[in-house]
Amino acid sequence: MKRVGITGQAGFIGQHLFNYLGTKDEQQICRVPFERALFEDADRLATWVASCDVIVHIAAMNRHEDPQVIYDTNVGLVKKLIAACEATASKPKIIFSSSTQEEQDNLYGQSKKDGRELLEQWAASSGGSLTSLLIPNVFGPFGKPFYNSFVATFCHLLNNGGTPEVHQDAEVSLIYVNDLVAHFFEHITNGESGVNFHKIPAPVQQSVRQVLKKLEGFKTAYVENGQVPDISEAFDKDLFNTFTSYIPKDYFPRKFVKHTDNRGAFVEIMRAGTSGQSSYSTTVPGITRGNHYHTRKVERFAVISGKACIKLRKVNTDKVYEFYLDGNEPAYVDMPIWYTHNITNIGDDELITLFWINEPYDPEDPDTYFESVD
Results as ranks from 00 to 15, higher is better:
312 L>Y: 13
68 Q>F: 02
61 M>A: 12
289 R>C: 11
144 K>D: 08
107 L>G: 07
154 F>E: 08
296 R>F: 12
28 Q>H: 13
351 L>Y: 06
195 V>A: 11
353 T>C: 10
266 F>D: 08
137 N>M: 09
295 T>F: 03
182 A>F: 02
225 N>V: 10
348 D>Y: 01
177 V>S: 06
332 Y>F: 14
100 T>L: 05
22 G>T: 10
175 I>M: 10
245 S>E: 05
200 I>L: 10
29 I>W: 01
3 R>I: 10
371 E>G: 05
305 S>H: 15
62 N>E: 08
288 T>F: 05
8 G>R: 03
258 K>R: 13
148 N>V: 09
6 I>D: 02
54 V>E: 00
343 I>C: 01
322 E>N: 11
193 S>G: 08
320 V>C: 04
139 F>P: 01
255 K>W: 00
256 F>H: 14
181 V>P: 00
202 A>L: 06
256 F>A: 13
7 T>R: 01
234 A>T: 15
1 M>E: 06
328 N>W: 02
146 F>R: 10
293 Y>P: 03
296 R>K: 14
126 S>W: 07
292 H>I: 04
231 I>G: 02
178 N>A: 14
116 R>Y: 12
157 L>C: 11
141 P>K: 15
16 H>L: 12
6 I>P: 01
3 R>A: 07
351 L>W: 04
200 I>P: 02
243 F>L: 04
184 F>C: 01
264 G>F: 03
216 E>T: 15
174 L>V: 05
256 F>C: 11
238 D>Q: 15
297 K>T: 15
134 L>K: 15
350 E>C: 11
86 E>M: 00
113 K>M: 13
325 L>G: 05
70 I>G: 02
213 K>P: 00
274 T>V: 07
34 F>P: 03
127 G>V: 07
60 A>Q: 04
313 R>Y: 11
196 N>R: 15
222 Y>F: 11
173 S>T: 13
220 T>P: 00
14 G>N: 08
165 E>V: 10
183 H>L: 09
344 T>G: 02
65 E>G: 09
223 V>T: 15
124 A>T: 13
242 T>V: 08
81 L>C: 04
88 T>C: 00
366 P>R: 15
57 H>I: 01
232 S>M: 13
312 L>W: 14
271 R>W: 02
284 V>I: 14
371 E>L: 12
227 Q>C: 11
195 V>Y: 12
356 W>Y: 12
28 Q>G: 11
208 V>R: 10
99 S>F: 05
349 D>F: 03
165 E>S: 13
19 N>H: 09
249 K>P: 02
260 T>M: 03
311 K>V: 13
40 E>V: 09
190 N>L: 03
244 T>P: 00
131 T>I: 15
355 F>Y: 12
332 Y>D: 04
8 G>D: 04
83 A>D: 11
